[in-house]
Simulated assay, not measured.
Amino acid sequence: MSGFEDLEVWMLSRKVCKNIWNFMESTTLNKDFGLKNQMNTSSGSIMDNIAEGYERNGNREFIQFLSIAKASCGELRSQLYRCLDRKHISQKQFDEILPKTILLSKKIGAFMSYLKKSERKGSKFD
């Protein structure tokens, strides 16, 4: 494909988004419309902002969109705690997904650092 679909952070964000959707479909979260909507939005925002930033073809803009994606990842982690506290998901489910969101956040942060240090500023500057 040779696009954002090849980025490890995007692939991980897609997996997290799928996991969240599965929770929505298979737990009582499906009936908590407000939280469900927020979690759907924040999990989707992670992968969508990575894709949009990539398509901007410039590191500065990409870093800005990665920052938004990282913030959405933090928002999703907070929402997972609310899910657990409201007993929508079990401790086991929580323990399976939370580390994935932490890893994703760290990888996005590391990717941002890499881009900041990169001498290549993006294809729109070629």
Rank of each mutant, 00 (worst) to 15 (best):
N19H: 12
D95T: 06
G44R: 10
G122F: 05
S123E: 12
S67N: 12
I68A: 06
I108V: 05
F23S: 04
L104Q: 05
S13E: 08
I46K: 06
S43F: 09
S90Y: 06
G58F: 06
L103T: 14
A110G: 14
I102Q: 09
T41K: 10
E61C: 01
T28I: 02
C17F: 11
M11A: 15
W21H: 10
S90I: 08
K87V: 04
E55V: 07
K116Y: 02
R120S: 10
S2G: 11
S45Q: 03
I20S: 06
L104V: 05
R14L: 02
M1H: 10
C73P: 00
K100H: 12
A69N: 05
G34L: 13
K117P: 00
A110T: 12
K18T: 14
S123N: 13
E5N: 10
D48G: 12
S118R: 07
I63P: 00
F111R: 11
Q38G: 06
S26N: 15
L104A: 09
I50K: 07
Q38P: 01
S42W: 03
E8N: 11
G109W: 05
D48F: 04
I102L: 07
R82D: 11
K70P: 00
N59I: 02
W21F: 10
K107M: 15
M47P: 00
G74F: 08
A51S: 11
K107S: 09
K18F: 12
G3F: 01
E61I: 01
T41L: 04
Y81H: 11
I89K: 04
N37G: 10
N19W: 01
L104K: 06
F33T: 08
L98M: 11
A110Q: 14
Q93I: 02
G58Q: 13
M47H: 10
T41I: 06
M47T: 13
D95V: 01
E52N: 09
D32C: 08
K18L: 14
S42R: 05
S43L: 04
S43M: 04
P99R: 08
I89C: 07
N22D: 15
I63E: 00
E119S: 13
D85K: 12
G34P: 03
K107I: 11
S78V: 05
K116P: 00
K31Y: 09
D48C: 12
F65T: 08
S42Q: 10
W21K: 13
K100L: 15
I46E: 02
R86H: 08
G34D: 14
E75C: 03
L84N: 04
K87F: 08
L29V: 09
I46M: 06
M1L: 07
Q38L: 07
E52T: 10
R60H: 05
V16Y: 05
K92E: 15
M39L: 07
S2E: 14
L103V: 12
F23N: 01
F23L: 14
I20Q: 06
K31L: 03
R82F: 09
L66A: 03
L103S: 13
E25V: 07
A110V: 04
I102K: 07
I108H: 05
F94W: 02
C73V: 00
S26F: 03
E5L: 09
F94P: 00
S113H: 09
E96M: 05
K31G: 01
S26V: 01
N59L: 06
R14E: 10
I63M: 02
K92A: 11
I63S: 02
I46L: 03
D95H: 07
L76F: 06
I68G: 02
T27E: 07
K106S: 14
N59G: 11
